[in-house]
Amino acid sequence: MSMDMTTAGDPGLLDTLQHQVAVFARRAEQTRLGGVGQVRNTMDRAAYLLLNRLDQEGPMGVKALASSMGIDSSTVTRQVAPLVDSGLVKRTSHPEDGRAVVLQLSPRGASRLDEVRTSRRQLMADLTHDWAPEEREAFCALLTRFNGALSARMAPQGSAEAEQPPVA
């Protein structure tokens, strides 16, 4: 359901919002928001999201992982291959169906994910060091809501990816 500009709000404010979102997207892509120090930019976004999902939801097959992330199986297969090669993800056989493959975070993957999370958490702390806690909370809530609306718009058939916040 789309609103016309009279019910959606002030066109000037909406112009500012769209401009700030565009600037954010460009800067996020340029810096990759990879964290701080030596860990900065050592893990790409796709790898981070895959490892994070396996950490949160536990071992699962390619189809389940793809569905959970709102992407197709071939993309997961392509993105997970280097993670398996580098020992961050283990491929094992399904306990009930030996032909099915289950992907799980390896101990090395869990350790790397923790390193990257810590580095990214520090970056967020640095960027918002002068914000009040309630400002951080409000920004998180609004950005989560904005991302949810964007996901729903991109996947109108109801398979919108609800990106889970990383577990601290």
Rank of each mutant, 00 (worst) to 15 (best):
F146I: 06
V101H: 11
V167L: 08
M5H: 08
G158S: 01
E134H: 02
P59R: 10
S86A: 11
E29C: 08
L33I: 06
G109C: 09
M5R: 10
R121S: 04
G37F: 00
G109L: 06
M5L: 14
V76Y: 04
L17W: 07
L143A: 09
G58L: 05
C140Y: 06
I71P: 11
A149P: 00
A22K: 04
T118R: 09
F146R: 04
G87T: 05
E161D: 07
P156E: 03
A138T: 09
V102T: 05
Q30E: 15
H94Y: 05
T118F: 04
R45A: 15
L49V: 13
G70F: 06
G9E: 01
D126P: 06
P165H: 10
Q38D: 13
L54N: 03
F139R: 00
A168G: 05
T16G: 13
G12I: 06
L103P: 03
R32I: 07
L142H: 04
A25E: 15
A25D: 15
G9K: 01
L105C: 07
D55V: 00
Q122S: 11
G61W: 01
T6K: 15
V116Y: 02
E29H: 14
T144A: 14
I71F: 09
D130H: 13
P11I: 07
T7W: 03
D97W: 06
L51D: 00
E161H: 09
D114I: 08
L83H: 11
D10Q: 06
L51N: 01
E96Y: 12
A149Y: 03
R32T: 14
Q56H: 01
Q79S: 10
P11Y: 04
V23F: 11
P59W: 03
S73A: 15
D114F: 08
Q157F: 10
E161M: 04
A168K: 01
Q56S: 02
P59K: 04
A155S: 08
E135T: 08
D72F: 02
S159R: 09
S74E: 12
F139D: 03
V36S: 10
G61T: 05
R91E: 15
R45V: 15
P82L: 10
R99S: 14
A81F: 14
D10G: 08
T7C: 08
L127V: 14
G37N: 08
L88I: 07
G158L: 03
T16R: 14
V36T: 15
D10S: 09
V84D: 05
H129E: 13
L88V: 03
M3Y: 13
G34H: 01
A46G: 13
C140H: 08
S151T: 06
M69E: 01
T42R: 10
R78V: 11
L105W: 09
Q164Y: 00
C140E: 04
V84A: 09
K63G: 15
G109M: 13
